[in-house]
Design a protein around this nucleic acid. Structure first.
Length: 482
RNA sequence: GGCGGUAUCGUCUAGUGGUUAGGACAAGAGGUUCUCAACCUUUAAACCGGGGUUCAAUUCCCCGUACCGCUACCA
């Protein structure tokens, strides 16, 4: 027996940016497809002409691309398939499951208010289901506007969720949903069913906020005589205030994380561990490892709070594991866009840049931190960290820094080791601790009080730069002293 | 309100009918060190409540509670 190949999809709607909730659903679907050798598809759900913004599609796709979630077939746009949905709506109208509803939105609003006042479920009361065929015909002929509704059958309905197990609901609790609006356009549930069926989607993994829709969609599959896919409802991602992440609440566009210097593999890794577990103590995974390990059995059903601190810690781990060369290429754009150095310059002296990145990588949380912590490898404007300056640039240091510069110049070769020996010797001569010399030297060379080991830093900076910075710091101290 | 889902450290999670309930992030203490990191050691921190079932329940069942979601001619 052959099993049908897995076909899964992510179906964002361009009514806002891609947030971590949708991104995480995409991650699960993508991992599932890649793990099982299936296909990962993208569909844009832009049936709502009012709220859909075409210009939002590109950022959504670029966020997916940034995460490395490549898709296998051409992207489907629902707005271009409206005729298909109309056909299906018509088809359902010919079955006992479809009927026309002439109720106005005002009428429905009133019904709802009344139902609420009487503490009943605000469900459509099926007024138009009672209409005689003649009456319907008369009103249609008279040009009256109508929507097409699905009559939900009686009885209980159950489906076996890949995540939560069997879920049952009474049909009486489900409203006769609108399939086609008064203007003939399809609503979400119809479009989804038609597309998932025609795209051959085998597994629908989506947020558990869609559970109620699933029942409605199952009725639609039945009404249309189509086979059901498997459904799996993954837990929601919550904000620290426990509300589900949403564009409406101003949650971050995933693209923003790229700008902030998060590595896509860190994001993928972190997102995957929200609602899924390898069942081991390992937490840091490379993309390929996740592809190998991911199974839907290990999905859990409880919602998870998104913790940026932990994301950042994942980011650090992934930065640390990345080979220096690759990391340098990823960091380069941050230096360029900050105007620190040009791309040409970076390419020309790539080895230098790689060394800079390597020296900084273990004290960085985000890729953008490299810029803040490493400017002085490219630009130095002679200003010093105010607090450190007060502490380190005491008057006696001017002479010491000059002396150190002189001795460095006299060194046969300027190496890390030589720089260290030389500084140690000077400190000893003067009866000073190493630190008494190291700290001012660091400040002189970088303007900062934090950073890589001094000798690594000096070694990268090269002798002429080091000497000049030591001397100008000495001048600065003298000048300030006046 | 109705319907559905979920419930283990602050957060993400592992796990079990009998365990010192494990790991990670964050927090605290210490070590190492030229700073910051990294690293090492270490501390504190959890089975929502009540009933069952059972020799034994954090684990299985029921109820309650809390939280989340859905409840549109949005998706």
């Amino acid at each position: 027996m052959t099993t049908t190949p897995v076909r899964v999809r992510i179906a964002p709607s361009p009514t806002g940016y891609l947030h971590v909730g949708t991104a995480r659903t995409a991650v699960f679907n993508w991992l599932f497809a890649r793990h099982s050798g299936g296909k990962f598809l993208v569909r844009i759900e832009d049936t709502d002409a009012e709220r859909s913004k075409p210009e939002l599609i590109e950022p959504i796709l670029s966020a997916l691309t940034w995460l490395g979630l490549d898709w296998d077939e051409e992207i489907l746009y629902q707005s271009r398939r409206m005729h298909l949905y109309a056909e299906s709506a018509k088809k359902i109208l010919d079955t006992p499951y479809g009927y026309r509803c002439f109720c106005s939105t005002q009428q429905l609003d009133e019904d709802r208010k009344l139902a609420q006042a009487e503490k009943r479920a605000p469900k459509y009361n099926r007024r138009c289901l009672a209409l005689s065929p003649d009456e319907v015909k008369r009103r249609v002929d008279a040009g009256e506007k109508f929507v097409i509704r699905l009559r939900v059958p009686d009885g209980d309905i159950t489906f076996d969720d890949m995540v939560a197990g069997a879920i049952t609901v009474k049909s009486a609790d489900i409203e006769d949903l609108v399939l086609a609006r008064a203007d003939g356009s399809a609503t979400y549930n119809l479009a989804v069913v038609v597309d998932d069926h025609t795209m051959g989607v085998t597994h629908i993994m989506r947020g558990n906020d869609h559970i109620t829709n699933t029942f409605k969609q199952i009725y639609l599959y039945r009404a249309l005589g189509w086979d059901l896919p498997k459904f799996g409802h993954v837990p929601l991602i919550l904000r620290p205030d426990k509300k589900k992440v949403s564009k409406r609440l101003g949650d971050k566009d995933v693209n923003q994380y790229e700008i902030e210097g998060i590595l896509p593999e860190a994001m993928l890794n972190y997102l995957c561990l929200l609602g899924w577990s390898s069942k081991t103590d390992q937490e840091i995974f490379l993309r390929e490892e996740l592809v190998k390990l991911f199974t839907t059995e290990n999905l859990n059903a409880s919602n998870a709070v998104f913790d940026e601190e932990k994301l950042i810690s994942f980011n650090k781990s992934h930065i640390m594991r990345k080979p220096d060369g690759e990391l340098a290429d990823l960091v380069a754009p941050y230096f360029v866009s900050a105007g620190i150095v040009s791309q040409e310059e970076l390419t020309k002296s790539r080895d230098y840049f790689v060394r800079v990145v390597s020296a900084l990588k273990e004290r960085v949380r985000r890729l953008s931190d490299f810029v803040r912590l490493g400017v002085y490898f490219y630009q130095f404007n002679g200003t010093y960290d105010a607090e450190a300056e007060k502490k380190q640039f005491t008057p006696d240091k001017a002479e010491l820094l000059r002396l150190l510069a002189d001795r460095y110049e006299q060194l046969p070769v300027f190496t890390k080791e030589a720089a260290e020996r030389c500084l140690n010797a000077l400190a000893e001569e003067r009866g000073l601790s190493k630190g008494a010399l190291i700290h001012p030297a660091r400040l002189a060379a970088s303007g900062m009080s934090v950073g890589p080991g001094l000798y690594d830093m000096l070694d990268i900076l090269t002798l002429p730069v080091v000497v000049s910075r030591l001397r100008s710091a000495a001048d600065y101290i003298d000048g300030r002293r006046v």
